[in-house]
Simulated scan of single mutants.
Amino acid sequence: MTLAPESPAGPSAPQAPASVRAILTAARSADPVSLAEVNARAELLARFDRSYLVPTETFLRMVERLTDPRRAGGPFRALTIDDRRAFRYHSVYYDTPGLRSFHDHRQGRRLRFKIRERVYEDSGERQFEIKLKGRRGDTVKHRRPLTGADTPLDGAFRSFLADTLHRAYAIDAPAALLPSLSTDYLRATLVADGERVTCDAGLVCDDLRAPRSVRCDPGLVLVETKTAGHLTEADHLLHAYGVRPAVFTKYCGALAALRPGLPGNRWRRAARHAFG
């Protein structure tokens, strides 16, 4: 896919989707914060995530409030690396031939997991990530860097997966895994103490087992609030603007849209909103 990459001066393509322009505007409106400080203040590898599909005008109203210099506790700041404030993400999700991960999430099983390779395209960094559901219903992420020709299906990463699932859930890792879905999008991240707001635009999802793809509505920003527990200020603002949490994840929502024959009713409404 082609997103409008950010340059220090701003987006390189004025014709970029409204959602892309909105997150670039939002990121530029905030003071910068380094990755090291983000990890110190709000790394949140164990956290509660809430997802929202937010019209761009509402999104910009929320950001104006969060980045107000008069905000109690100080304004949210934008993750900034080498003068860049919006970053291209590419992820490949792995699942069993029968889509065990998808169905475990559909059925609300407590011992469920997602497996993916995440690529930070602007830096070239790659991570193998395992996302688990914690005892409190929170998301717990385990990760290990990928280098060179490494793939998530290599022996060392299969062992890491097996060890992680055994320690966390006392279950065996799946015997067979295949790439099932890829996602591409542009992300800006706003940070305050103990909380983060990720803002994704231009989402494109490709079914890796069939030649199909879906694109998110260009007038929507996918906002995710991430915190150790309580509702954040961003949650309260969005609720006040009439935007409620969406039953939506990139992996399950996209598969529900891409494969209408799957029993994905819990995501169908949000997927129609996101993808049309």
Score class of each variant (00 low, 15 high):
Pro8Trp: 02
Gly219Glu: 07
Leu3Cys: 10
Arg112Ile: 12
Gly108Val: 11
Ala210Asp: 15
Pro174Phe: 11
Ala256Val: 00
Leu44Val: 03
Cys205Lys: 09
Arg28Lys: 06
Thr227Trp: 01
Tyr251Trp: 02
Lys114Ser: 11
Leu24Arg: 10
Ala13His: 12
Gly229Val: 03
Glu195Tyr: 01
Phe128Ala: 01
Arg84Phe: 01
Ala162Gly: 14
Phe76Ala: 04
Leu66Arg: 02
Gly98Glu: 15
Lys131Met: 05
Ala78Cys: 14
Leu178Lys: 11
Leu186Arg: 12
Glu195Trp: 02
Val204Asn: 11
Leu262Glu: 02
Arg71Asp: 00
Ala246Phe: 10
Ala254Glu: 05
Asp122Pro: 13
Val63Arg: 08
Arg268Gly: 01
Val221Ser: 13
Arg143Thr: 14
Ala162Pro: 05
Thr183Trp: 08
Thr80Ser: 06
Val191His: 03
Val243Lys: 05
Ala162His: 12
Leu178Asn: 05
Pro55Ser: 10
Arg47His: 03
Gly194Ile: 02
Ala18Ser: 13
Ala170Cys: 08
Arg187Gln: 09
Met62Thr: 14
Ala246Tyr: 03
Ala149Pro: 03
Glu64Cys: 04
Val20Asp: 04
Ser213Leu: 12
Ala27Glu: 07
Ala170His: 12
Thr249Tyr: 08
Arg269Met: 09
Gly124Thr: 06
Val119Pro: 00
His166Lys: 13
Ala228Lys: 07
Pro245Ile: 04
Pro145Phe: 09
Leu3Met: 13
Gly242Met: 05
Tyr93Ile: 01
Ile115Val: 15
Ala13Val: 13
His166Gln: 15
Lys114Pro: 07
Arg143Pro: 03
Leu132Ala: 05
Arg28Gly: 06
Arg88Phe: 06
Glu43Thr: 11
Thr227Tyr: 03
Tyr89Arg: 09
Glu6Asn: 13
Pro245Asn: 08
Glu224Tyr: 03
Leu3Pro: 10
Val20Cys: 06
Ile115Glu: 04
Val221Gln: 12
His166Asn: 14
